Simulated scan of single mutants.
Amino acid sequence: MRIPGRRTSWPAYAAIGWAAVYTLLGLYWWAGGAWFPFGTGDPRAADDGALLAGATAPVLGPVTVALGLAGVAAGWAMSRRVRRPRPVLLVFGWTLAALLAVVLPESRAIKYLPPLGFIAFFRPPDPPTLNFLVLLVGGLVWAAATLGYARATRGACAACGHGPGRRHGAGAPGAWAVRWGRPVTYLAIAAPWVYAASRIGWAFGVPIGVPAEFLDTINANNPGHGTMIMELVLAGLAIGGSILTVGLIRPWGEIFPRWIPWLAGRRVPPAFPVGCAGLVSVGVTAFGLSMSRGLPEFFAGGMVVDGYQMNPLWALPPLAFLVWGPALALAALAYDARHPARCWDPAHAAGPRGLVLKTRANP
Rank of each mutant, 00 (worst) to 15 (best):
P105T: 04
W94L: 13
G171P: 08
C160S: 00
A196P: 03
A197M: 15
L187T: 11
P128W: 08
S107T: 14
T146M: 01
R179C: 12
A220H: 09
V178E: 09
G117Y: 00
E213T: 15
P207A: 00
P164F: 00
H225E: 10
R166H: 10
G165C: 08
A191G: 11
T153P: 04
N222Q: 15
P128V: 04
L90H: 05
G93S: 11
R151M: 05
G209V: 06
P128F: 05
A188S: 07
A144F: 10
G93V: 09
T217I: 06
L130H: 05
T227N: 12
V194T: 11
G93C: 10
G171W: 02
L215Q: 03
R166F: 10
P85R: 02
I110W: 00
D216L: 14
L215V: 07
A212I: 07
T185S: 02
G117F: 00
R154S: 13
P87S: 08
R83N: 09
G165S: 08
P173A: 05
F118K: 06
R83I: 15
G117W: 01
G226P: 07
A175E: 13
L116W: 08
Y149Q: 01
A177W: 03
R179L: 12
P87N: 09
L113I: 14
L130R: 14
R179T: 15
L130S: 12
G224K: 04
R182M: 11
A196G: 01
R83L: 15
G181Q: 02
N221S: 14
G205Q: 08
L147S: 12
P115F: 08
N131D: 11
D216E: 15
